[in-house]
Design a protein around this nucleic acid. Structure first.
Lengths: 334, 334
DNA sequence: CTGTTAGCGCTTTCAA
DNA sequence: TTGAAAGCGCTAACAG
């Protein structure tokens, strides 16, 4: 591989001049620029990014941490981040945190030790205090789906409370009054907020919250199954079920159908997130759209703006969910 | 951030000695090692990986290219790769190729310019010749789901032909004789091989291949819908449908159900890949397991072995698919 | 076992 | 507008 030195030799200029033309910023006369560019072409020169990083103290890479690489939710998020960053010529280094404290800590260390210019992370296990401490370092860190005291401008969020509200309302407006709810793990802020929104809607329509029809699940298929099983065992009747995410809704549907409940006639179900597969489920799942892809893009923009001075970018820190109506809610008003 | 120089000063040794203890390889006496380690701790020293890379000509990062970051298939693949590489302390830089020539070329250039020690790629659009050329460079490149003339030892593959055979056989053994087939795009080797396996099974059981019951889809939901629509329009009766992947099977199911075909009673469907969601589909999808996660791990091992001399690793270049029996095939023998 | 020294390929003052 | 030169922080001969 040709080095900057060989280019400078061939072009008959100094190293500094070659560096100037690769970096496009400083003034170089047209004639010398031409000479240098020609030399670069004939030598097939490509700057060594490692050397650039060492000298400039910029790696042009952004570290990403998600809980898992598989799973439709994180897929969308990464896709949004990568698209935006790649277009800006930045590299994306990816790690997983598996929703547990140890892996999350290690993953962040890993990225930091790699001299990333910034981090975009989806942290679930580490607490605010730890993250606040982390942010005192030199590497800016941006958070997905999280609000941290004093670091709001580093966070990109979904209005989960409103989403929970929308979900409940969608069901209520189809005439349902006996509504069950399967939540995500309450230590996760998203889960907590969605539940709050759900409760707000109930209150608004004067429907009491019934603890017999509440279950804290795990945001996975299993949670949906377990919750439904529990509700079915109890005698409390219910005609609708709000699930705090689509995976749990899928689990609930499977379980219900295995127990001869006809969907959506006997039981209306609504999910949350609108993952790609929600439309393949039968009956096609009515759910709340979570614009993760856009949120990923926005996090990337935030980094580009703050770290690389892409100043024109407009940043939005909070996103609104919306209702996606499909076939899984049965109207019982008539 | 403390540098190696400060550590050497504090410990009263040379730079080289400090380097030796960080790299654990060369011999250092216990007492000096202790001194150095203490100095590292008190200074909170972390080697600068960029400087290490520049000096050693090793970046400890591996570039990955997949077609898309979302989608269950690639998610599993990346998860396998990342898990293995991360455990070995290597970084994973991810790019997307979107199944088109231009993005694939650019993506590879992008990774190469980043001085990755090796690449693991899933290429769909670029042809063998281009890839052979690419492999003449200094960076080793490993291929997922691809067989390239002369580069077999750089490839990790699924025996797709056998998978297609298994799928057809599963349906035939439940008594089906009129079997439709929705293929993936035939320019993709996977699709072609699966079809061949399917045909082999038909032949084995003396069932003629009927072009009226063949459709070339796109490996997406749409393909499944379109194929089913086409078959239904023709008068040729069929009781089973083999789809070359799960997404198309999901699409076929949706379409069939929308047209009042009772599943699996009136139509048996089998998919391919066993993506996470195949069990949420109703009826739960019988399919062919594609061990992408393991294949991802294996690709990572291949890179570790060849590039970083992890010599104990055993490499396997071809994986066998297997049948996953669930509820979407109806027995019509009785 | 340890130290000296010469780079790795590039950026960035500072002068000219 | 251009060039000279001093690093960036580390590794890897080589010598002792």
């Amino acid at each position: 591989m040709a080095t900057i030195y060989e280019v400078s030799k061939l072009a008959g200029v100094s190293l500094a001049t070659v560096s100037r033309v690769t970096n496009k910023n400083a003034k170089v006369s047209d004639t010398t620029r031409k000479k240098v560019e020609d030399a670069m072409v004939t030598l097939n020169y490509r700057p060594n990014s490692i050397a650039q990083s060492l000298a400039s103290n910029r790696t042009n890479s952004i570290g990403i941490m998600v809980s898992a690489l598989n799973g439709p939710f994180f897929g969308q998020m990464m896709a949004g981040i990568e698209q935006e960053l790649r277009a800006a010529g930045k590299h994306v280094i990816i790690t997983t945190g598996h929703s547990n404290e140890n892996d999350e800590k290690e993953g962040i260390d890993f990225l930091l030790s790699r001299n990333c210019d910034a981090l975009i992370v989806h942290i679930e296990a580490l607490d605010d205090q730890y993250l606040q401490e982390l942010c005192k370092g030199n590497t800016p860190i941006y958070f997905m789906s999280r609000t941290i005291e004093g670091l709001q401008s580093n966070c990109i969020n979904l209005d989960n409370e409103y989403g929970g509200y929308l979900a409940a309302k969608a069901v209520i407006e189809q005439g349902h009054k006996n509504i069950a709810y399967i939540s995500g793990p309450l230590f996760k802020p998203d889960a907590k907020e969605r539940l709050q929104g759900y409760k707000r809607a109930l209150k608004e329509y004067n429907i009491p919250f019934n603890t017999d029809l509440y279950f804290e699940g795990d945001f996975k298929e299993t949670g949906g199954r377990e919750g439904t099983q529990l509700f079915l065992k109890k005698e409390t009747p219910f005609s609708a079920l709000v699930c705090a995410n689509d995976e749990m809704a899928a689990g609930a549907m499977t379980y219900a159908r295995e127990h001869n409940i006809s969907l959506p006639k006997d039981l209306s179900i609504i999910g949350f997130d609108n993952i790609i597969f929600s439309r393949y489920i039968y009956p096609k799942l009515t759910t709340i759209c979570n614009p993760v892809f856009e949120m990923g893009q926005m996090a990337a923009k935030l980094a580009l703006k703050n770290v690389y001075q892409h100043n024109k970018l407009k940043i939005k820190h909070s996103f609104k969910p919306s209702l996606v109506t499909r076939d899984s809610i049965h109207n019982i008003i008539d």
